[in-house]
Design a protein around this nucleic acid. Structure first.
Lengths: 190, 190
DNA sequence: CGTTCAGTTGACTAAGGTCAATTCCCGTGG
DNA sequence: CCACGGGAATTGACCTTAGTCAACTGAACG
């Protein structure tokens, strides 16, 4: 089921029907098939994407090997913030894990909303704060837990990742190799 | 040398002299001696701190062992964002590495500024965005590089950390043991 | 169907950890 | 100002966790 942009934003700020209209008018629609690329490494990420339905992952490549950084599900937001803010070339690739429908907004339009709708700046702040807190959770797990504990934490806190995502992507997200994840899972079952 | 709050904020937003007065009036002064605790684990972090001069680190404890998460220098900002925003008990401790003078603002006063000075909300957004990007750099290094590469990256990108911070804190920040860092440094010199 | 790629398993390797002894340095008290 | 005590850093020997390489199985898709 598609998630509504209006409902999602209204959880954070209040706005009138006209205000929402001018918000909604800034977003365009895009759909991706399974495995299609949303934006590629070495290009500037020019948009912020809202996931109406589907799953996006991003990954970086190190020594010829994909390292998955994060998974974003229905109702979530994706951008490469550094590339988006500074117009620098992105060092990550974003890809649909299953067929995905997105709404996306350009930097110009986002800045227009920041100016025109005072509380939208607040929305931007709240999103950035939540993104920071989410990333802190990932970093804390990486620095404080070993591989098995990280897997169990993911299982407990984000079971949807375990259900929906191919195991070799999960392995690289956890900072281990697919073989190691396979062994961890084997030892849990026995 | 102390860094000015006014100059620091004015890099991000414009404000009048009166507006800055009401900003400045929200901050109180605090000084810490070397090794003094700024805020402790299992307490709510009620303030955002601006470092006029000095160095703060925060650490978490796992299996009885301190794991340093980050170092903050003169001109930087510190808070436990998750604890601050949700009034939850902090899982980290912040401590002065050398004698440090701080300005700090409460949540009430910060929210007052967000309401009274429209562009201050923008300042909050920009700070949160920069915090996110900084944390991404740390996380990327942890997931993409091995211990030696992480040390070299730190040496290249933040030499001040290497100069000013005791080595066993740097080790845990890099996700390794002091003995391993000592060996990495030894191998570089030879 | 057959090809391809994900996942599993086994044998071995390597990066970094652990334990312990030693040296070094620096802050504190006499 | 100096001496000393204790934590920081170093080093060696050995261990553990996760990685590597390779073979095999299985499911999915064209």
């Amino acid at each position: 089921m598609k998630v509504s942009l209006e409902k999602t934003i209204s959880k954070y700020i209040d706005f009138t029907a006209e205000e929402f209209k001018s918000i909604r008018d800034c977003f365009k629609i895009k759909t991706l098939k399974r495995r299609e690329i949303l934006h590629d490494i070495n290009t500037v990420c020019k948009y912020v994407y809202f996931i109406e339905e589907g799953i996006i992952r991003y990954f970086q490549v190190e020594d010829g090997e994909e390292v998955t950084g994060q998974f974003f599900f229905t109702g979530g937001w994706y951008t490469d913030l550094e590339s988006f803010l500074s117009n620098s070339y992105s060092r990550q690739t974003a890809q649909a894990i299953e067929s995905t429908s997105l709404l996306y907004i350009s930097k110009q339009d986002l800045e227009k909303l920041y100016k025109e709708i005072p509380q939208f700046e607040r929305f931007g702040r709240l999103m950035a704060e939540q993104a920071f807190i989410g990333l802190r959770k990932k970093t804390d797990n990486l620095t404080l837990l070993d591989a098995k504990e990280r897997y169990l934490m993911l299982l407990r806190q984000r079971p949807k990742v375990i259900e929906k995502i191919p195991q070799h992507y999960i392995a690289s997200y956890l900072g281990i190799k697919p073989q190691s994840l396979s062994r961890i899972r084997k030892n849990l079952v026995l």
